[in-house]
Design a binder for these strands. Sequence first.
RNA 1: GCUGCUAUAGUGUAGUCCGGCCAAUCAUUUCGGCCUUUCACGCCGAAGACUGGGGUUCGAAUCCCCAUAGCAGCACCA
Length: 485
Amino acid sequence: MEEMAKPRVHARELPSLEKAEHGVVMRFAPNPSGPLHLGHARAAVLNDVYVQRYGGKYILRIEDTDPKRVDPEAYTMVREDIEWLGLTIHDVVYQSDRFDLYYRYGRELIERGGAYVCTCENEQFRQLKLARQACPCRGLTLDENLALWERMLAGEFYEGEASVRVRTELEHPDPAMRDFPAFRILHTPLHPRIEACVYPLMNFSVAVDDHLLGVTHVIRGKDHIANTRRQRYIYDYFGWPVPVYRHYGRMGIEGVILSTSQMREGIQSGIYRGWDDIRLGTLRALARRGIQPGAVRAAVFDIGIGDTDISFSWDNLYAHNRSIVDPIADRYFFVPDPVCLKVRDAPVHTARALIHPNDVNRGTRTLPFLGEVLIPREELGKAPDMIRLKDLFNVRVAASGEEYVLTYAGEDMADARAAKAPVIQWLPAELALPAILETQDGPVIGVCEPAAGALQGNVVQFERVGFARIDRVEPQELIAYFCHR
RNA sequence: GCUGCUAUAGUGUAGUCCGGCCAAUCAUUUCGGCCUUUCACGCCGAAGACUGGGGUUCGAAUCCCCAUAGCAGCACCA
């Protein structure tokens, strides 16, 4: 059977990777300085998608080689976030478990003449580097270098007194390439997992690990382009084949900061309540609002691995989430800023509303009308003549001074249509659960159906308000987090 | 300043390598209409872009040059 070319119905697909036909080994390598956010999700998901597509292995590598940027709690937060995202991780590696390895290869790099121990003052070296001049240490003999290296490991240097530099080209047009550092001395702070005073810098540990772990393809942000070039020197000294690299563009998100350190400051200064504050772009904040992992995956998949800088729009994420959540979210009434009114001349009646309008099999919820209703104050401000209380009956609205008076106006939906009456959510005054809907712009006080309280942790749709996740029910009050319309 | 990367509608994206089938794709968004006892979902329709200027060519979103703008790196961070 002939495979006809499908006319312009191209399924969205990421660009193919070179040399991937026989499978790939890829890695997601976060620094455990805080929980994962949308920026991490992009790297994590794109790598995941490729591993799924080509088959192979997906490694989680915890890059904790800088004790200054390790938050002990982040180890577990990162694992939780990865689980939430649903990554298919095959292997987990902690760089702090591999320092002996780095030392071994560090020594070998020196022996191969690819690196030397530098005891210059920082600023002095910088000046020399900018002037394309060799520092005095660059000419030391191998024996001298190895002796210094041993002294480094023995803890004979204070912080900043010695480092190991990779020998590159002093004439390199990019000063960032010239004899970049591979190891440094650090005595404080203490590393939460290991005891060490010689720490590898990322370009060294990453190159060694990528090779040793058999990583074939690396997809990461373009802020690593310079690092890729630097790492190539290390590969070349050891004679290792280099992986295939792709660098995608910088991603900003409207309205939020994606910097772990800035978020931490905000938390410490009390601006945010915690890592899952719904104004943050962390995955746990999104989860708390009811964003589904599938929506995050779809949104970052759409963005792809393009190298242009982009501004991530919430709309696109919300659209994906809505399509996931709309078919499953139970419908309930939430009345913001409620006003309580008696309905004159109304018969006793019980409303039966569908739990989901597109699926009668999900059943109904019952709301008894006992004389008084709570309706959104906002609806009265619009001053329509008639309002349809959804699934109940029509009421005529009259203003008498500051007060509004509702009068029963029949059950016929046709009347409501004829009068162009808005169909609004309402609650019986006697059966309303006080509720707070937390939004990114602050809390909205209202009331909701008591039945919603049984759905803790689930996403519901508050009719005419939007989707929200039921966070918890406190003694006399339900707390929900607004997700999107 | 130096070294690089990028530039398609409000947002994201396809097309760019191998110039014509592109009066430019898809999604989102916005606005109409239909459906509907939600301002959700669904359906129909519309709006909206090749950064600017030169050049090459019969022909350029696609190739070249310049300009402009944005971004990254120039850390003993990752």
